[in-house]
Nucleic acid binder design. Structure first.
Length: 460
DNA sequence: GCATGATCATGC
DNA sequence: GCATGATCATGC
């Protein structure tokens, strides 16, 4: 009987299906294939499954796990989030990008394609406070990129990353650059750097990956919770980017009033421009909640530019939970993860002769240097205020001043209230020392209006 | 004029 | 009832 790397497609499928319902521990106990157990504890769960379920030893990484079948095996976690929905727990890390060689290839000749064009996925359900080896494999799926509806976008993403290498900008690559296929950092720390072909500056070592947001959509599609997600691309052969620019060109130059009339919206909501952009895309739900925006982790935001070029308002995030925030480190915080992987699509409304005119869009993600300096300082100060119970600094005429990092002390971001009103509160993990409060007005992180101002110079 | 605290309308 | 995207209001 053949074994290990020599299994063919049908055998891989049979073995994968046989793993469903089993925990890693179960698989290790059954151990049907002959393997060398030495060094078995080095790897993660994926490696254990490779070794015990398929009898594959750690390989050189230059080929797919199964040859000649050309199939790569990936074991990946998903989890249940609040509200019962499912979500990927991590990005799916693929092969390390060889800056010196990969640019010489076309997409279909690339090392990425050779290694990852057919992936046998095994999903296990991750649960908090549970022994790793007790996680159960619940679903499997053979992902064949050549037949995948997202292939065109994945190729576009690959080309974008390669173009940055060709432009001598490998050191400026960010995971937020692309939609589904990303380039995530890979290595022990920020000093894991590699040479690049067209620039002397060393670049962070990165690997191709399917972004967490993309993996979440796969989880919802193949495991559950998929039905209620609205698509942006309905009955069009356009790629996402093509469709976006069509929509933008169609409405560019129209005023807020004209758009309200065109879409039959009469509203005084503060997020009226946000409602308008959903309608531009013919989306019933929120644009941010559609499949394509979710998969690519793109967050649409509306921006108003005043006649003098100033942007009055900062950009809000969803309110954070005090109790959750203090259970995180900066390194694994929601905020850091979000900023590193999110791309913002700003819809610009510029005030002209008293009216806000839609001028177009601007794509942006926060540079890593800002995340690791200013944002980190702000996050840590927020953490300290909450964890030590030092939130309220003073009260005058019923108005409370806080110790949260303000706009004047951080050039990138700050913390401010975000709720229905001051009575809209969330529980505190530590009672506030000055007031004794055990709950406090909901707050969130904000990106400073001054900080983003320069992004929109082209619209002035 | 700006920084900060407070609040609004909507949709599910 | 609540989260969200966003703007308002006020004192220094």
């Amino acid at each position: 009987m053949k074994k290990g790397r020599l299994y063919n497609k049908q055998e891989i499928e049979i073995i994968s299906k046989s793993a469903i319902g089993k925990s890693i521990e179960d698989i290790m106990n059954e151990e049907v294939v002959t393997i060398d157990n030495s060094g078995v504890n080095k790897g993660g769960l994926g490696q254990l499954v490779e070794q015990y379920l398929f009898g594959i030893q750690n390989n050189s990484e230059s080929e797919p796990d199964f040859m000649p079948a050309g199939i790569e095996l990936k074991v990946t976690p998903y989890k249940r989030i609040k509200g019962g929905k499912l979500s990927a727990k991590e990005r799916l890390v693929l092969n390390i990008i060889n800056y010196m060689d990969e640019w010489k290839n076309d997409f279909k000749d690339s090392h990425f394609w050779f290694k990852n064009n057919t992936i046998q996925l095994l999903w296990y359900l991750w649960e908090p406070n549970k022994d790793n080896k007790k996680f159960k494999i619940t679903h499997e799926k053979l992902l064949e990129l050549a037949k995948n509806e997202d292939l065109e976008q994945i190729e576009e993403d690959w080309n974008y990353i390669i173009q940055k290498i060709k432009d001598g900008k490998a050191h400026e690559i960010s995971e937020a650059d692309t939609m589904y296929l990303g380039a995530c950092t890979k290595g022990a720390n920020a000093s894991s750097k590699r040479e690049q072909p067209f620039n002397d500056i060393l670049a962070m070592q990165r690997a191709f990956c399917f972004k967490t947001s993309y993996m979440t959509q796969l989880v919802r599609k193949y495991i559950g919770d998929y039905s209620d997600v609205e698509k942006v691309l309905k009955g069009t052969k356009d790629t996402f980017n093509q469709y976006v620019s069509e929509v933008v060109n169609k409405y560019k130059g129209k005023s807020q009033k004209e758009l309200m009339r065109e879409f039959n919206i009469d509203s005084k909501a503060k997020n009226i421009n946000s409602m308008l952009i959903s309608r531009m895309f013919n989306v019933q739900s929120k644009l941010a909640d559609t499949e394509e925006f979710q998969k690519a982790n793109i967050i649409p935001k509306t921006i108003r530019i005043e006649e003098n070029g100033r942007i009055k308002e900062s950009i809000s995030f969803p309110a954070f939970k005090y109790t959750e925030l203090i259970n995180q480190n900066w390194e694994d915080s929601d905020l850091r993860e979000q900023l590193e992987t999110t791309k913002y699509m700003f819809f610009v409304f510029k005030k002209t002769k008293g009216e806000y005119i839609f001028k177009g869009i601007k794509l942006w993600n926060m540079p890593e240097t800002d995340i690791e300096t200013s944002v980190m300082e702000m996050w840590k100060k927020t953490y300290n205020a909450i964890s030590t119970g030092n939130i309220v600094k003073s009260i005058t005429n019923g108005i409370r001043k806080t110790n949260f990092p303000g706009m004047s002390e951080n050039e990138v971001c700050h913390v401010r209230p975000h709720g229905r009103n001051a009575k809209d509160t969330a529980p505190l993990p530590v009672a506030d020392k000055l007031t004794g409060a055990t709950k406090y007005t909901k707050h969130c992180f904000w990106i400073n209006n001054k900080y983003i101002k320069d992004l929109f110079i082209e619209f002035n």
